[in-house]
Design a protein around this nucleic acid. Structure first.
Lengths: 298, 298
DNA sequence: GCTTAGATCCAGTTTTTCTGAATCTACTAA
DNA sequence: TTAGTAGATTCAGAAAAACTGGATCTAAGC
């Protein structure tokens, strides 16, 4: 078992086919197939079910993928720590309370490998308060959803543009999302944040009348509930990051699919521009395909 | 980087010389020397100081050895899990929404290794509703806090008896918890669950007047906030499970320290007794030192 | 039933890993 | 201070592993 095989495995998981994974890792599809087979021989399990196209990951495969992810992260963390650049001080950050708050600790952990002496300081608040504090210099940067009325002394850079999905437990017949929303048990996201508003507004616009079986105020618990067959729901893409979430079927919410953006707001003349640029890049990377790369300055 | 190299590394560490390690891993000393050199090239560090005999491990080498140990353990754990026995069907579970809900997915993931064909089904509800559903056979078991008025046809077995901690960010002077609670910024846990009540009641009993800087309704977000220096708070032990939480200082809350229990309620004549017993054991194990082992039947 | 895209199989090529022998080096004993 | 020893390194070649390319197979879509 080596890290190249594990990287190949993760590439297959995130890109869907052996062929695309081969492109990503710089090998031929044949080599990818052989690597997976060698890993299956070593672990004595079937990681992919090849009776479908594209091959689908098996439950055992999910466990192997988790292990691969853990091992590669551990290795990368060690490399980062051994390289040890160090910038010290306190980075004053603000954030709205939403799935973005789940991203931030993960970004912080990654950045700690790079800047172990940099201390992040986080405040959770409303968007308008956060923006005022950034403008007033009380915060270095803040994570807020797309927002109207940002002063010219600030700039907002999206790091995430993510679709919203109707999520359906594995095994449930998944056809027309509108029909599902009208007929299947629905877990409602009940919270005083813009995302909950966006979802409810779009449901009304679509003329959907949901059959609520639960009202839960944390996205993570909603996803857990769907995975375990409690019902269906609507969540943003970033909520579906765990390997277990592979078992949840996802259908586009809205036509065209509804998206929402989250970004970093900072002062245009920022003293900590390099660190905030890295934070932006780390957050965008954690967002996978829906990460938005900040355009380079001209 | 592959597991053979990492095994060689650990063999050198535990046996002292490349030559002895070579014997152990079935290679020649020359191959061992080349493996170590290749690893040093990949990580761009010196793992062993060769200016002495026998070579001595460097500080960076200690980090690499730790990483190797973690990676090999992770791989071995996965292999063991993949080898496991299998039981199929659906396990109907209920749970209150609290930190116990964080434990349950992790327990499910572990049990999936052992019973990949067993499908858990989870419902989140209030304790009284859950207990009635278990009694009525609509649920196989439920996770609830200690509860009065459980019928004799049911039995409640605690799997967790955990202390509550005052948690303090790293670097903050940590002396008398009462003084800290009175003077330092406090992040309040605001939720309509028994735990929040327990904390507030004990704060009042201690005569503490906190300086609230945030009210957050998820324990995970509170811990994140403390870690990042937002303030101090009071949380149950099970909330402090992540490696990052090692940086958080913890002081006993109350004297004697306040504890609370969470357990599984099931029918005394349960058809799924074996699985629920395993679930209890897994949950107790996940709870570490504060896990409560179910007494064996006489 | 045909077409397509992707996966597998197989043989050959390339790369990596290991061995064996020669050489080097830190440490110990006289 | 010198000689001997045990262990580490270096190098060239052999063996094993990984990869490529082409042919074949197969699920899915039309």
């Amino acid at each position: 078992m080596d890290t190249r095989q594990l990287k190949t495995l993760l590439a297959i998981q995130s890109h869907g086919t052996f062929a695309q994974a081969a492109d990503l890792v710089g090998l031929t599809p044949s080599a990818v197939s052989q690597q997976v087979h060698a890993l299956e021989e070593e672990l004595r399990v079937t990681i992919f079910d090849r009776s479908t196209r594209p091959p689908r990951i098996t439950p055992e495969g999910v466990q192997v993928i988790e292990m691969a992810s853990d091992i590669l992260r551990r290795a990368e963390d060690t490399k980062a720590s051994l390289r040890g650049d160090q910038i010290a001080g306190t980075l004053m950050l603000g954030s709205v309370r939403s799935s973005a708050l789940n991203l931030l600790p993960r970004a912080m952990v990654q950045m700690r490998g790079r800047y172990p002496d940099l201390k992040p300081s986080l405040r959770v608040s409303l968007s308008s308060t956060l923006i005022a504090d950034v403008a007033g210099g009380r915060l270095d940067a803040a994570i807020v959803a797309e927002h109207l009325g940002i002063p010219n002394t600030l700039r907002w850079s999206p790091f995430l543009r993510e679709p919203l999905w109707v999520i359906v437990p594995r095994g449930m017949e998944a056809s027309d999302p509108i029909e599902l929303l009208n007929t299947r048990p629905y877990i409602r996201f009940r919270s005083a944040v813009p995302l909950a508003n966006l979802i409810d507004t779009e449901l009304s616009r679509l003329g959907v009348v949901t059959n609520d079986v639960a009202e839960i105020d944390t996205i993570g618990s909603i996803v857990t509930g769907v995975r375990q067959g409690l019902g269906i729901s609507v969540v943003p893409h970033v909520a579906l990051q765990e390997p277990e979430d592979l078992n949840i079927m996802r259908l586009a919410f809205g036509a065209p699919q509804v998206t929402r953006q989250i970004g970093i707001v900072e002062r245009t003349a920022a003293p900590r521009a390099e660190i905030i640029a890295l934070l932006h890049a780390v957050l965008a990377d954690l967002c996978g395909d829906y990460g938005v790369v900040r355009p380079t300055r001209s």
